Amino acid sequence: MRVFVAGATGVIGSRLVPLLLSTGHDVIGLARSSSAGVALEKLGVHVVHADALDHAAMRRAVRVAAPDAVVHLLTSIPARIDPKQMSRDFAQTNRLRAQGTLNLVDAAREAGARRVITQGLAYVYEPNSTGLATEDAPFWHHPPKQFGPVLAALRELEQLTEEAGGLTLRLGHLYGPGTMYAPDGAFARQVQARKVPIIGRGTATFSFTHVDDAAYAIAAALDSKARGALNVVDDEPAKVCEWLPVLARLLNAPQPFHVPEALARLVIGSWGVAYMTRLRGADNANARHALDWHPKYPSWRQGFEAELALGGSAS
């Protein structure tokens, strides 16, 4: 299969591309810089240069590539995010998820691609509900102001994907090489400096996804007829009060202290507090069934241990 990967040099793309090549796919990678293109070419990837936000350029690039499938993994997320300025920090990513998806979907349709796969998020669900969220659960009805534009862009991405007969993989909190949870990642460094407290009772439920598990799910989705959206997360959602002390221990960091919600809100805003106290975990049963997929790391416990116990050398 000829697979056009937009975001081929990103955190997930860098794990997906070698996997696709090793299983016999022809990969066309989208690159904006010559240095990124050179790295892809060394792997055996055919490289095209275009701006994903340029509608005409994307149509030309995908038409020439003539792929069977288009995979959209484009983001532009800063290494360190200020939760009080999330709208600013995610502005470019929101454009890539909205206008970028429209451009890619139009290009894929014109080129005759029969499969479109996009990257969504699995922590978008209405928090005022009990139990793990399936894909039918509603998105957050009244999210904190800073998360509103992010959620709107994700809604648009999923709608465009569905209209194209494609599949959105709602990924959990990504960890592994190149992520903020890696030993050299921004979040890990903050934990080591004891700058990440447990806010309130630490009741936000996180569903984690290792980057390799995300890549394997995308590869499986290429040969699947699944449409709509699927939660691609591990089997053990966990509250912040449970996983954060484990992460600190594996990083040889001091144990996190506790901060009241009201005090934390002054520092990190309403979204920062909601992120650490209100998120709802996701159920992966449908992805397991529809994609015949199961996570390499069923639990974040195993994944964190593999990535962090030896300084990430397990990767």
Rank of each mutant, 00 (worst) to 15 (best):
D89A: 10
R170D: 10
A238K: 05
F90Y: 15
D234R: 01
S224P: 03
P149N: 07
A8P: 02
F90I: 10
V211W: 11
S129C: 07
V196N: 12
W300R: 12
T168Y: 06
H46P: 00
G37K: 09
V64G: 06
Q119N: 10
K195M: 15
L247P: 12
P143N: 09
L74Y: 01
L132W: 05
G178V: 04
K195D: 14
A152L: 11
L291V: 01
E162W: 07
H294W: 01
T205H: 07
L160T: 09
A309W: 00
E41N: 12
T205N: 04
P177N: 12
W140K: 11
A69P: 09
V17T: 02
G185I: 06
H289V: 08
N286K: 05
A309Q: 13
E110Y: 00
T93R: 12
T168C: 15
E261W: 00
A65F: 07
D136F: 05
W140V: 09
L308C: 13
A186G: 08
A31K: 08
A111E: 09
A219P: 00
G269M: 11
E135N: 10
V27A: 11
A108H: 08
P177D: 12
S315I: 08
R115L: 07
L96Y: 06
T209D: 02
S207Q: 03
D106F: 00
G311N: 05
Q99K: 09
A98V: 02
D89Y: 03
M180H: 08
S22C: 03
S76T: 01
S207K: 10
D212I: 00
A57T: 05
G178S: 07
G228C: 07
I268Q: 13
A220D: 00
E110P: 01
D106I: 00
E156Y: 03
P298I: 04
T203A: 14
V124E: 06
A215R: 01
F139E: 09
Q255C: 04
A98I: 02
A217S: 02
P127A: 12
I12W: 01
V70S: 12
G37D: 10
A65H: 07
Q119V: 02
R32E: 11
